[in-house]
Simulated assay, not measured.
Amino acid sequence: MRRSEFQRAVAGEFGTRAAALVADLSLPSLGGRTSAEAMDAGVPPREVWFALCEEMDVPESHRHGVGRLEPRR
Results as ranks from 00 to 15, higher is better:
Ala38Thr: 06
Ser61Gln: 02
Arg73Asn: 12
Met1Ile: 10
Met39Lys: 02
Glu60Arg: 13
Ala51Gln: 07
Ser35Ala: 14
Arg8Leu: 13
Arg2Tyr: 01
Gly32Lys: 12
Leu52Ser: 00
His64Leu: 03
Leu30Pro: 01
Ala23Lys: 13
Met39Val: 11
Leu69Arg: 15
Asp24Arg: 13
Ser35Cys: 07
Gly12Trp: 11
Trp49Asn: 01
Ser29Asp: 13
Leu25Lys: 10
Glu37Cys: 03
Gly42Cys: 11
Glu37Ile: 01
Ala41Cys: 10
Ala38Glu: 04
Pro45Asn: 06
Asp57Met: 05
Leu27Phe: 00
Ser35Phe: 00
Ala36Glu: 12
Met1Ser: 12
Glu5Gln: 11
Glu60Gly: 13
Ala11Trp: 05
Pro44Cys: 15
Arg8Glu: 12
Val66Thr: 15
Phe14Glu: 14
Ala20Met: 03
Glu55Gln: 13
Ala19Arg: 03
Gly65Met: 04
Gly31His: 01
Arg33Ile: 02
Ala18Gly: 06
Gly65Gln: 05
Glu60Val: 15
Arg3Asn: 06
Ala11Cys: 11
Ala41Asn: 11
Val66Asp: 11
Arg3His: 04
Ala23Glu: 08
Glu37Met: 03
Thr16Asn: 08
Arg46His: 14
Leu30Ser: 02
Arg2His: 03
His62Trp: 04
Phe14Cys: 14
Glu37Asp: 09
Gly12Leu: 09
Ala18Val: 00
Ala18Ser: 15
Pro45Ala: 03
Thr34Leu: 05
Leu52Ala: 00
Arg68Val: 15
Asp40Val: 07
Asp24Met: 06
Gly31Arg: 01
Ala11Glu: 15
Ser61Glu: 05
Phe6Met: 06
Glu70Tyr: 06
Arg72Trp: 12
Gly15Leu: 08
Ala51Trp: 01
Arg2Asn: 06
Ala20Ser: 14
Leu27Thr: 07
Ser29Val: 13
Ala9Phe: 08
Leu27His: 00
Phe50Gln: 13
Glu54Lys: 13
Ala20Gln: 10
Thr16Asp: 10
Ser26Arg: 12
Ala20Lys: 08
Glu70His: 13
Val10Ile: 15
Ala38Tyr: 00
Val58Asp: 00
Cys53Leu: 09
Ala9Pro: 06
Val22Tyr: 00
Arg46Met: 14
Gly31Val: 03
Ala41Lys: 10
Ser29Phe: 06
Ser61Tyr: 01
Arg72Asn: 09
Arg8Pro: 09
